[in-house]
Every structure is written in C-alpha cells, then in structure tokens.
C-alpha cells in the first residue's frame, strides 16, 4: 500500500514518529511513485518556504520599530520614575523651567501696576548692590508694559525712577527729532545699580 500526501507531508516536516518514520523511509527506497510524489511535495515546500521575507528586507524595519519603542516607551518610563532611584532631569529641562519662572515673575511685575494704579509699583524694586541689573522697557513691545506706562506722564515716571535710585537712560528710536536739537538723555544717575529704561 502506498503513502498518502498527509503522511508524506508529516514525514517531510520531520514530525513522523517511530515506527512509522522507518516504515516510510523503507517504502520510499523502493516505491518510485511515492518517491516522485515526495519529491514534488519537497519542491512545493522549498518554493513556498523559500519565498519568504529575507533578513536584509526585515533589518531596516527592525531598527525603526526598536527606535520608536525606545524613544516613546523605554525613555519615558525611566523619566516618570520619580520614586525610582535614578531620578534625573536633563539640563535643558531645568533651563526652560527657570526661563518659564522668570517669565512669569516678570510678567506679574509688569502687569501688576495696571490694577493697582500706583506709581511705586510701576517698575520692579531694585535690589541694592546686585550690580549691573538692567531693566529694559519698550513701549513698542510688550502690550502689558506699554499699557502700564501709558497711564503715567513721562515726568512722573522719571520722578518715580529717580526716587527709587534708578539711573535712567532715555532713548527715542526710529523717530527723527523735529527740531535740530538732539534729545538730551535724562540722567538722574544715582547709585548703586544702573537699570535702563528705554521708551
């Protein structure tokens, strides 16, 4: 009795157990028809299995997916671990946090006076002996600043600054003076620090 395709396929896949395996091998030794059929099934298997996606076709995708997972899952997991031992924040993060804090602080100081409408809150208090602190206020930029400054006459602002110990450097940019005389900078020039107010 000859072998059917299912037995031959099982044998081909190396899944046939004894004693059937030996019996099939013996049969294939003398039965030309079964041997031919086995040859055909082997070819079919070789062709189908051989038409596979190759390693070199897989490699770029393997790299890409790993990078995605590393970036979006592995690294995030490490950062979130506040309670884990290796707590760390990268320097750029600290810098941007500091920048955001300063931004909020300055913003609060500039907006503050418009609600209070008191001259002594107009410009941030100067901390003595810090040296070199420069405060620039431009009427053309920063809506909050220009709105605040518009509420006061220039003279009052200067008087206020003088009383607070500011050295004021007043400049007018982008406007040609109407007369021949250049505008003299107002210089109350008091110590100890020299912030600059530009209008």
């Amino acid at each position: 009795m000859c072998l059917d395709d299912q037995i031959l396929n099982t044998y081909l896949d190396g899944e046939l157990t004894e004693p059937w395996k030996t019996q099939v091998e013996e049969h294939l030794n003398y039965c030309v028809a079964c041997k031919t059929r086995f040859g055909q099934l082997s070819t079919l298997h070789a062709v189908v299995s051989g038409s596979r996606l190759e390693e070199q076709e897989i490699a770029p995708h393997k790299e890409k997916v790993l990078q995605f997972i590393e970036k979006n899952y592995m690294e995030k997991k490490n950062k979130i671990g506040f309670l884990h031992k290796d707590f760390r924040i990268k320097t750029p993060m600290l810098l941007s946090a500091a920048a955001a804090f300063v931004f909020v602080l300055v913003g609060a100081l500039l907006i503050g006076p418009s609600t209070q409408a008191e001259p002594n809150a107009l410009i941030p208090r100067v901390v003595p002996a810090t040296g070199g602190a420069v405060v620039q206020v431009r009427a053309t930029e920063g809506l909050a600043a220009s709105q605040v400054l518009e509420n006061y006459p220039l003279e009052e602002i200067l008087k206020y600054l003088d009383s607070r110990g500011y050295e004021v450097d007043l400049r007018v940019k982008g406007i040609q003076p109407m007369g021949g005389e250049p505008i003299e900078p107002v210089e109350p020039a008091l110590e100890p620090v020299e912030p600059t107010v530009t209008e």
Partner: peptide
C-alpha cells in the same frame, strides 16, 4: 497536521 496538509 491536517491543516498543513490541506493548505499545501
């Protein structure tokens, strides 16, 4: 086993 055979 049967499915492998049928598929082939």
């Amino acid at each position: 086993k049967v499915r492998v055979h049928r598929a082939r």
